[in-house]
Simulated scan of single mutants.
Amino acid sequence: MSAPAQAPLQARQAAFSSREFRTSLGMFATGVTIITARAANGQLVGLTASSFNSVSLEPPLVLWSLARAAASMAVLATGSHYAINVLAADQKALAERFASKDVDRWAGVAYTEGISGAPLLAGAAATFECFNRSRYEEGDHVIFVGQVEQCGHREGASPLLYHGGRFYTEHPL
């Protein structure tokens, strides 16, 4: 005789406010990136993101996430390639610009074209040129997993950091 089937486990209802969740997340310092791509019509797309992380060394995989409601979702979800530009400490203004709405994000921005057409921002601490390998819908975001086809870094560059709603630069302990 087999054991009765058990209902699948489910998470408990959140016992905290959205504000508390956001504030608690802000206690985790992150690097700052700008995700860039070129749409099929040639238009440049770019946005500031701090949700970047490594996934695998073999094959080389990274991930980042984007709100489902983001204006650039259609381009990034359907495009074959994008670049992740890890910002240097002196690129705070660029991070703010690419996080803003209703501005020409690309006006006067220096970049080169990557191997698959995605813009690589001049002065970035590091760049990752990615094939858009897979996407996972979770909550109000989509998690993008990119297979890195090319990467590079600027020797001696200090990264731009974000913590508790403010920008920082690194200070060795």
Rank of each mutant, 00 (worst) to 15 (best):
A67K: 14
S24I: 08
L63W: 04
P8L: 04
Q13N: 07
T30L: 10
A5C: 01
Q43E: 14
R12M: 12
P119K: 03
L9P: 08
G108P: 07
L44Y: 09
P8G: 05
N53G: 11
A118C: 03
T23E: 11
E96S: 12
G114N: 01
T23V: 05
A40K: 08
R68Q: 13
R22C: 01
T112P: 02
A77S: 15
M27W: 03
S24E: 04
W106M: 01
Y111S: 12
P60K: 09
Q6G: 06
G42K: 06
A118T: 02
T33W: 03
L9W: 10
S24Q: 11
L25T: 09
P8W: 04
L63R: 01
G123P: 04
E113R: 08
K92Y: 00
A122L: 04
A125I: 02
L44F: 04
V103R: 05
R97C: 09
T23I: 04
R12D: 12
R12C: 10
F21Y: 15
G117Y: 13
A15F: 00
L57S: 12
D90P: 03
G123N: 03
A5S: 05
I35M: 11
Q10S: 10
R105Q: 10
S116K: 12
R68N: 14
V32E: 06
A70K: 08
L63G: 01
I84L: 10
I115T: 09
R105Y: 08
V45F: 04
T33F: 04
D102H: 15
A83V: 13
A29V: 11
E113Q: 13
G114A: 07
L87M: 02
S56C: 14
T30V: 10
D102L: 09
S56E: 02
L57I: 12
L9M: 11
A124E: 01
M73V: 02
L121E: 09
T112L: 11
V62P: 01
G117F: 12
M27N: 13
S17V: 01
I34L: 07
G31R: 05
V109C: 08
F16T: 05
A70C: 04
A89G: 01
T48K: 04
V75A: 14
Y111H: 15
Q91E: 03
P60H: 09
G46M: 07
S17T: 15
V75S: 12
K92W: 00
A118S: 15
A37T: 07
Q43T: 13
R105K: 15
T48R: 10
Y82T: 05
R38W: 00
A122W: 06
G46I: 11
A88I: 10
G26M: 03
L120I: 15
Y111L: 09
P60A: 14
G31M: 02
R38P: 00
D104I: 05
T36I: 09
T112S: 14
A29W: 03
A77V: 00
D102V: 05
I35T: 06
R97V: 05
L61K: 08
A15D: 12
T33Q: 06
N85Q: 04
A5Y: 00
L121G: 07
L9S: 12
F16S: 09
L25S: 11
M73D: 01
A124Q: 05
S56L: 05
E58P: 00
P60R: 13
S65M: 06
G31A: 03
E20L: 11
S65N: 15
L66N: 03
N53T: 15
E113M: 10
A122C: 01
S116F: 15
T33K: 00
V45H: 12
D102E: 14
G31I: 01
R12W: 07
